[in-house]
Design a protein around this nucleic acid. Structure first.
Lengths: 148, 148
DNA sequence: AATGAAACTCGGATCTG
DNA sequence: CAGATCCGAGTTTCATT
C-alpha cells in the first residue's frame, strides 16, 4: 500500500460510510472477496489514516443547537497564537485560514443562542485579534463529512 | 428512553468516538456493566438518531485538498430552490442560512484549487442568486465533529 | 444475569501474480 | 513480495431462560 486506494478500498469505505459496524464478513460477501482480504485492507486504511470509523453524535440530539461562523482579522505576527487559542476552545469545531480581508474563519457550536455571546467574548479575548465579524447560523440544511 | 441521555450513554459514546468498532464486550468491561446493557443502550442511541457509527475518510488522503466558503445573497422567493440546488451538488458539504447581509453560507470541498472555479460556476448558475462572495480556504487547522 | 448456538474475528499456512 | 485464499481456534453477538 503506497497511499493510493483502489476500487476495493472504495467499496469498503462505501460500506462503512453507511454502517461503521458492518461485519467484515458482510462486506466481504457484498464485494465478492474473502473476509481476510477485507480485514487486511481495513487495517491498511486505518493505519494510513485514510479511514476512521467513529461514533458521531447528532449535535441537536445532545442539545447543541446553535452555531455561528466568525471571521477574524488578526495581527499577522499573532496568527499562530490566535489559531492555538481557538483550537483550545471546546466549542470551536472548525478553523481555517482564508483568502480575502479576514485571515481566519472559524465555526462554533454551542447549546443555545444564549451561549453564543459568551463564546464570542471568549474569542474576542484572544490576544492579537484586530476585528471580528460574527455570523449566526439560522438553519443548517446539509452537514456531511462523506467526501467520497 | 425519552430523548435524554445519561452518564452510561455518554460512556458508550466516548468509547465509540475513539474506535467505532470497539466490541460491546470491551465497552461493557470498561464501563462495568453487562454486554447486554451496552447492546440495548447502543440500539436506543442508534434508533433515536442520537449516535451514528460511520466510516469517515480523511479528505486529503483521497485527494480532496481544496475548499472554499461561499456567501450567497439570494432572492427571498428563491431561497428554498437555491438551497435545494446546492444540496444536490456533490462537492457541497455544508449549507446554512445566516444572519447578516447574505442569506446563505455554504462550504465546498474539491480535489484541487483548479476545481474551485468550475464549482463556483456551477453554483453561480443556480437561479435566484443575486450576489456571491467566495472565500478560499488556505489551511485547515481544526475540523471536528465530536460535539461532546 | 447466565447459557449456548450462530456469527464473526483473526492468525498461520498456503497459493498466486 | 505483496496480497489473496483456506481453515480452524477463539471471541462476540444475541435470543432465551
Amino acid at each position: 500500500m503506497n497511499g493510493q486506494i483502489d476500487e476495493l478500498d472504495r467499496g469498503i469505505i462505501r460500506c462503512l460510510s453507511k454502517d461503521g459496524r458492518m461485519s467484515f464478513t458482510e462486506i466481504a460477501t457484498q464485494l465478492n472477496v474473502t473476509e481476510k482480504t477485507i480485514r487486511s485492507r481495513y487495517k491498511n486504511l486505518i493505519d494510513h489514516e485514510i479511514l476512521q470509523v467513529v461514533g458521531v453524535v447528532n449535535p441537536t440530539a445532545i442539545g447543541v443547537k446553535a452555531g455561528a461562523i466568525i471571521e477574524l482579522m488578526v495581527e499577522l505576527m499573532a496568527l499562530e497564537q490566535v489559531i492555538e487559542g481557538l483550537r483550545n476552545l471546546r466549542e470551536v469545531r472548525f478553523i481555517t485560514t482564508t483568502s480575502g480581508k479576514y485571515q481566519i474563519m472559524t465555526q462554533i457550536a454551542v447549546p443555545s443562542q444564549d451561549d453564543l455571546s459568551s463564546s464570542f467574548k471568549r474569542i474576542r479575548d484572544i490576544p492579537g485579534i484586530i476585528e471580528m465579524n460574527s455570523i449566526i447560523q439560522l438553519n443548517v440544511y446539509k452537514n456531511t463529512f462523506q467526501y467520497i
